[in-house]
Design a protein around this nucleic acid. Sequence first.
DNA 1: CAGGATCCAGCAAGATACTG
DNA 2: CAGTATCTTGCTGGATCCTG
Lengths: 142, 142
Amino acid sequence: MGVTKTDNQQLKVREKIDKILLDKASNENCCPVKDILGRFGDKWSIYTILMLGRKETLRFNELKTLISGISQRMLTVTLRSLEEDGLVKRTIYPEIPPRVEYELTALGHSLLLKLLELADWAKLNIHQIIEAREVYAGKKSH
Amino acid sequence: MGVTKTDNQQLKVREKIDKILLDKASNENCCPVKDILGRFGDKWSIYTILMLGRKETLRFNELKTLISGISQRMLTVTLRSLEEDGLVKRTIYPEIPPRVEYELTALGHSLLLKLLELADWAKLNIHQIIEAREVYAGKKSH
DNA sequence: CAGGATCCAGCAAGATACTG
DNA sequence: CAGTATCTTGCTGGATCCTG
């Protein structure tokens, strides 16, 4: 034998990584992961997706109130990029005063689920990370 | 009845979101997800983690070669922040010429797995997203 | 009410030169 | 070899004013 279960897992992981890196080559200059993560790696996208996940639809100023600290411009920019990626649907009602409603698309909902999984990881390990940061800070000042 | 399976799923999702947002309140000013995502949402962290996932250990210049386009400074900064969070272990061998080896910690490996899951989502949906972008671009110029 | 346009500050990130 | 230090720049994101 000589091949443990851990070794096998390792091999699978490396295979997967290689696949992703291959995709990168086939695409222009960026692997999908990086592209996607780049999208919601910004300051507000995650909050926005989470907030939209809590209700069916939300209006612009409702979102602005829910996402504390966001500026008008950033909310507009964030919503536009999410809309552009097909994660958020924007519906304009030609009324006076104007009304615009935002909601997650099916794609947006499926991303939301993945984000929640990642959130679980984060919640599970946040203490380890914080601890590591303290250790690191301690070593630095030693 | 009147409560479909979809409704139940929706409720669970919203519950989960609420939990995350509560954590945000208990922490300083940031939910764990955002904190964590902020870390590897930058330009190079993901590549670095992926590359480190392919080998046991890697030296500074090996990494620099593997991650095409990264500058010396950015590699240093990226590795330091990953080390600070306890995702990467840095071992210095006091030789001449100096040798420094980097490897993923257990925590780093567990994050790698989650990143690969996200990568799967990205690979599965990248075409939908690209299509959405084209539709959006088409609408804009219409 | 929803958001477009503009201006500006601050930080992220690149290039270059130097060091233990 | 594996960085650090410094300078410079480009873009993110904020504030403000304006419009359909």
